[in-house]
Amino acid sequence: MNPITLFEQWFSEEKSQNNRKLSNACCLSTVGLDGYPNARFVSLKEIVEDSFVVTGSLSSRKGREIENHKKAALTFWWTSSERQVRIQGDVTKISQALAKTYFEQRNRDSKIVAATFTQGEEIQSISQLKEQFEAQKTELENREIKLPENWSGISIQPIRIEFMEFKNSRLHERILYQHVENRWKSTLLQP
């Protein structure tokens, strides 16, 4: 089976078992600017041309890390189905048109936050942050919020995808797919 098809099947099964939108949540890991791994949770937008798309501020730490080292990993943990998927791959920036489409799908408050703040920068206080947000919300009340220059997304073209299904017996079923010579090669792994 093609691992992208298997991922989509597992993803669909998790969404049907779990009525919350957390099925899209995944851990994005990058190589830090200091050489240490860095991880944070993001939301998978969709799979486009067999690549996994996530969005956000490219001037953030994750954006700078990806610009410096165009490789990343995604890890999904699905509680309802007790499955894990690990993806490693090469990163490219998505098109401006696709970024605009994703930005327009965000709720208004998310757009205001993206347009107002520089993700990951230091602040003086939470109350100052809230005041600035409310001021921007009032100022932008009847105006369209345009895509910020630093907001886009990345596409992760997988080179490895590992699926693990947890079992009560502890004999977890693991299969690793590796993209080698333009085809997927699968290997069974011990638990």
Score class of each variant (00 low, 15 high):
55 T>C: 15
111 K>L: 03
23 S>H: 10
87 I>V: 07
44 L>R: 07
121 E>S: 14
15 K>I: 05
38 N>P: 00
11 F>G: 10
9 Q>T: 13
171 L>I: 05
11 F>T: 11
49 E>F: 08
102 Y>N: 07
152 S>K: 04
179 H>A: 08
131 E>I: 07
72 A>H: 05
86 R>Y: 02
148 P>W: 06
87 I>D: 09
18 N>F: 11
120 G>V: 04
45 K>Q: 08
68 N>L: 11
184 W>G: 03
75 T>Y: 03
64 R>F: 00
95 S>G: 08
127 S>P: 03
142 N>Q: 14
118 T>Y: 05
36 Y>D: 13
190 Q>R: 06
169 S>V: 06
21 K>H: 07
78 W>R: 00
159 I>C: 13
78 W>F: 01
171 L>G: 00
126 I>F: 07
118 T>E: 14
156 I>H: 00
112 I>D: 03
172 H>G: 02
67 E>R: 08
170 R>V: 15
29 S>K: 02
100 K>S: 15
63 G>T: 05
61 R>P: 09
59 S>I: 13
128 Q>H: 11
152 S>Y: 08
182 N>T: 12
162 E>V: 04
34 D>F: 06
113 V>D: 12
187 T>C: 09
180 V>M: 02
124 Q>L: 13
37 P>E: 11
110 S>M: 02
35 G>D: 10
77 W>R: 05
140 L>R: 03
67 E>F: 10
90 D>Y: 07
31 V>S: 05
156 I>G: 00
19 N>W: 08
47 I>Q: 08
150 N>T: 12
124 Q>D: 14
